[in-house]
Amino acid sequence: MPEATLRTLSDPGRAGPVSRLSRLAPVHWLALAFLAVALGFAAVAWATGNGFYLRLATEALIFAGLAMSVDLLLGYTGLLSLGQALYFGLGAYVSALVLRDVAPSFWLAMAAALLAGGVAGLIGGVIANRVKGVYFALITFGLAQVAAKTVYNTRALGASDGLIGIPQISIGFGPLSLDTADPLSFFLLVLALTVAAYAGLAYLMDAPFGRTLAAIRANEKRVPFLGFNAWRYKLAVYVLAACVAALAGALYPMLRGFVSPELMFFETSGNAVITVIVGGVGTLVGPVVGSLLLTALRSVVGSWTEHHLIVVGVIFMLSVIFLRKGLVGALLARLGRRTGQGRTTP
């Protein structure tokens, strides 16, 4: 983030579209490298006919969307949300209901989840942003608990069983169409959506909007005296994060064919925070890398012990202690030192 800041600012006169590309920030190069690896993985999995790993990777990308939404709040604005699963689960349930009861339409499900996420984010944001710091974290936690318990106890939503039997759908893109039943197609679709989300959010976070959020994180008290209404900015990013989480959640029933109240539980919210911290706070790539890593780890460790949570917990603590900026942060610092352009905080 600071690298990008400095680059654009140091010579604004030459920030044309062409030179902009050639001087892509290191974090974006990392994102591109990640994309190449993901595509390589898809090719191998497809060639070996391995649908299981494609579906697992798709799930990792879906949870990466949730983690990115946490990063918008935590990494860019300095707001710790312990209840982001509320919006993820909301998106998942809305999508499941639309696909099952209204129409098997991808676009309709996504639009409905986006709308629901936006409205719920607005309500939750108004409530949570009344307070700051640890109280904000507690309120987001409380809101998600209330929502999860409500869903858990609602018959019409399948109560503790959740909703099952979500149909597989075919998604139309003009003349082309793609089937969620096909692991490779759906993986590529989710990968494309993840890349689009990364690009869009990274752009927004480097625009004055995102930099105002960085100012709020750095010193919220000064921000109003520079003419910004900090509350509005915090509400805006909260709604944005809720929308991102809801859209990610909307993909879940398309992959798994069911949704359950666990999607809204604290474990889901907590995992998203862990993912962001392990991957690299305030980088947006970090959450994606972290999600793939932790999903892979859970799957591998889970195959030989029930207690994979212990392993994840230990990794989380190690990364908090030794990699303060997560994997991506450490990588960026290293790249910066190599090329002599990384000036990270001392």
Partner: peptide, 26 residues
């Protein structure tokens, strides 16, 4: 924790139209 120039740029951002908040900094 922000660069000196960025401190000033943020402070000067109110000189711009509101929708510039969503345009590239340049």
């Amino acid at each position: 924790e922000l660069p000196v120039l960025e401190n000033l740029r943020i402070a000067a951002q109110v000189l711009e139209r509101p929708w510039h908040a969503l345009h590239p900094v340049g």
